[in-house]
């Protein structure tokens, strides 16, 4: 009963939905028709971006209300949410992960590191940015990007 009471007394905490982002939908996203399954891949991140991604799916930002949902396997996923500079050890697993996803698929690079290696550029274990390893459809800049930026990027994919 405690849980039910908590639900009743807490009510809805999600912030009011901001207006739909103006930017156009990536090409492949149209086929998904508003339902997007997301697989996160940490290719060598400092885990800052992971915390923000987790926040993007919390009750406050609630990315799921726009049709994006986290899944546990690339076999179920339409979008790979890649964070961090791609380290040498993670380059091949990242390629395999994206290869394991069904068509149509999109790759979203989250955070400055994923876009241009950020702080870690030139490190001995860094292979390069995500775009050096895979074709990237969408990038979310920031170190780390704020949850509403991530939500905005996902809304571009879902189109909702």
């Amino acid at each position: 009963m405690g849980l039910l009471r908590k639900i009743r007394t807490t009510g809805r905490v999600a912030e009011p939905a901001p207006p739909r982002p103006e930017a156009e939908q990536p090409l492949a996203a149209g086929e998904l028709r508003g339902s997007v399954q997301v697989r996160c891949v940490d290719a060598g991140s400092c885990n800052g971006c992971e915390i923000e991604i987790a926040a993007a799916f919390n009750p406050l930002y609630d990315a799921e209300r726009y049709g994006a949902r986290l899944v546990a396997s690339p076999r179920h996923a339409d979008v790979a949410l890649v964070t961090g500079p791609v380290t040498r050890n993670m380059a091949e697993p990242l390629r395999r992960t994206v290869a394991a996803m069904g068509e149509p698929k999109l790759v979203v690079a989250v955070g400055d590191c994923a876009i241009d290696c950020g702080e870690f550029a030139g490190g001995y274990g860094v292979e390069g940015a995500v775009a050096d390893v895979l074709p990237v459809d969408l990038a979310v800049p920031g170190c780390p990007p704020e949850p509403d930026q991530i939500v905005a990027a996902l809304r571009r994919v879902t189109g909702r």
């Binding site: 690339p74 076999r75 697993p93 290869a99 394991a100 068509e103």
Partner: peptide, 11 residues
Amino acid sequence: RVNARLWDCGG
């Protein structure tokens, strides 16, 4: 139909 590699968690 696509012949894909068995998903082995990237390992």
